[in-house]
Amino acid sequence: MTIIETEDLRREFIVRAKAGRFTRTKKVVAAVDGISCSIAEGESVGYIGANGAGKSTTIKMLTGILVPTSGRVTTCGLPPVERRKDLARQIGVVFGQRTQLWWDLPLRESFTILGAIHRIGARAAADRIDQLVAELELAEFLDTPVRQLSLGQRMRGEVAAALAHRPRLLILDEPTIGLDMISKERLRQFLVAERAERGTTLLLTTHDMGDIERLCERVLVVDQGQLVHDGALGELRRTVALDRTMVVDYAEPQPPHEIPGTERVGYEIDGLRQSYRFHPTQTTAAKVVTEASRFGEVRDLTLQEPAIEDIVRTLYGARGSA
């Protein structure tokens, strides 16, 4: 069953710029420029693209808070703008930078209010909240005012708030932005478990390739308002070189080393720091570490994931030359 369907979806904005002292020019910019796609219930889809590519604009139209300039969109079988409130009962949204929690009140109270707004009944709401509190480990700061929570704590609270009414579709707009590795991983683990248990459809925008690898089966790539790629994650891996880079810090200065299956891309401070780029099909991070530690004591390691921007650029280049 289809849960999201768009057909030639388009949204234009008028951008005014100062041209002279008293004159201003008007320019029409299409933030979303004819996107057609279909997402089935139960899928988990990553929606990626550079800043300003049109991701957030698309999400606003899917949730009915922004009217499309043209084209058609259906979410959970409803026209989003006309049926915005009915739709809101079936979807949960986290708008990355914005909070849906009550800033001055303890976290617990936001859940109570949201339960009432969604009219899910006190009993059912309490059960669900207890479950989310346990799974997202919210108990220790449940009585803390939201404004005093750390970003990681607040983000877990946001996700719980979005899931309190058991939505069919969960839309997360950059849920891991600004989180440290442990907070990110915790949130990802929860989302994997939540989907496994309830089959919630997930649509996720992110700049973090780790989110995509862990959470998404399918990836949509948008660039300048247009879909440049729509396919399974594996397909994306084959289309673009998802090279990773291992940065190794040695305890002692080293001559340049060669590690099989990698290309050395960095040699700094007399070899104290050396970087090796590799493709996951050629070798693994573990093998690179084993090899690197043969040359001397390794003090620190960093694994750099491919940047979304690089992926988009590669795809865009491929499209441009085709």
Binding site: I65, R84, A88, F95, T99, I117
Partner: peptide, 14 residues
């Protein structure tokens, strides 16, 4: 002004 109105509008209440 800040765009937080998006949150209010994405709720099942007028």
């Amino acid at each position: 002004r800040t765009g937080e109105i998006a949150v209010d509008l994405a709720r099942p209440i007028d």
